[in-house]
Design a protein around this nucleic acid. Structure first.
Lengths: 194, 194
DNA sequence: ATAATTCAGGAACGATCGTTCCTTAATGGG
DNA sequence: CCCATTAAGGAACGATCGTTCCTGAATTAT
């Protein structure tokens, strides 16, 4: 999976897979059936083993705000350990490379985006309660969508950056924006006119 | 350029270029020297002919807020005309595909990111003045960085979406977030403690 | 009108691609 | 101890890759 993840589909040859995995040529075809199916398999495995646990952070914490902070903290910590530039998000990379020519990759990625958006939505609901925010459900949907886009953007940027401090600043800025917006909803009926 | 843009570097063959551009095989090598150089040339051309004018929107409007709104409006309008899924941002696509293995693509893209960030910064300075915001220069840097990341995320998402209304919602949410944060700075010394 | 020059178009090269198939070493049942 | 079964390792296939080179038609200068 790592090879597909870092190099992408087209830039990875069967020879590369043989060398990096140790599995013999025939083994790859016996187990998966070919390059395309092996790639799809890796994409699914990534969703379960990498993306899934990351999204689970959003639902594991009781506090919504802490959950969102923990999600971005996990992101930063991961890149602090592995170093920059990172491999990015395998799903996002694949969509960029394959879409709009591969329907399968597109569907897998949109399923992932839905999961991520729902995770953020659930955390935001709790956060809005904690902050006594008067945000409407539609507002939280919009915020959740935004957080999904922003976090995907962060993952993508991590593939092309070499300064972890800059990445941290981005993450902090996103958190500050969301908190400001949430409290903006909360104050909406009190002292603001918008 | 369009072929490289939509399909990416590795998935585009010289045959594809011959068929889509009409230029003969030898012409491509006579004019550019090879596939890699042709790709680099397209990347530079994209920066000048596509990314440049888009960034110029941010500096052309006198009003900072209008400039930022116009930038995202241009983005939406472009995708409304061309239809979804769009080709994404050629520079961002290339970074995702080539980084971290191609230093050249990485440098071109980071130069683009700097341009975009500076464009947003200039517009934000004017916007902060318009709104009587008390945001510090560092705050505006952070906001500009955020806007750069978010707009890149939007371009990337446009490559994998088919509903323009959803794209519009994302753009509106980003604008709302930035405006909320700007006015949050403005109120910082008045009735908030953060 | 003729000769020199240019450049599009395509044939052909070696390398590498994804895939298939055959050989061979390891394993388990008789 | 011997044979049937399995799976790994690598040779080899046609197709396609990026690149080079050659041919022939169009153009320009003399």
């Amino acid at each position: 999976m790592w090879t597909f993840w870092t190099r992408g589909y087209h830039a990875t040859s069967i020879d590369d897979l043989v060398k990096t995995t140790g599995v013999a040529r025939s083994g790859i075809y016996a187990e998966f059936g070919g390059k395309e199916e092996a790639f799809a398999n890796c994409l699914e495995h990534y969703r379960e083993a990498v993306a899934g646990p990351a999204i689970a952070i959003l639902t594991n914490h009781e506090s919504g705000l802490k959950a969102i902070r923990a999600y971005f903290g996990f992101f930063i910590e991961r890149h602090r350990q592995h170093g920059l530039p990172g491999p990015g998000c395998f799903l996002a990379n694949s969509v960029t490379e394959m879409a709009p020519h591969s329907q399968a990759a597109l569907e897998t990625a949109s399923a992932h985006r839905r999961d991520l958006q729902q995770g953020f939505k659930a955390a935001l609901c709790r956060a809005a309660f904690e902050l006594n925010s008067h945000a409407a459900p539609d507002d939280l949907d919009g915020l959740a969508n935004f957080l999904a886009v922003a976090s995907q953007g962060l993952w993508s940027y991590a593939r092309a950056m070499d300064d972890i401090a800059e990445l941290e600043q981005f993450a902090r800025e996103i958190l500050a924006l969301v908190e400001a917006r949430l409290s903006n909803f909360g104050d909406a009926g009190d002292d603001c006119q918008a």
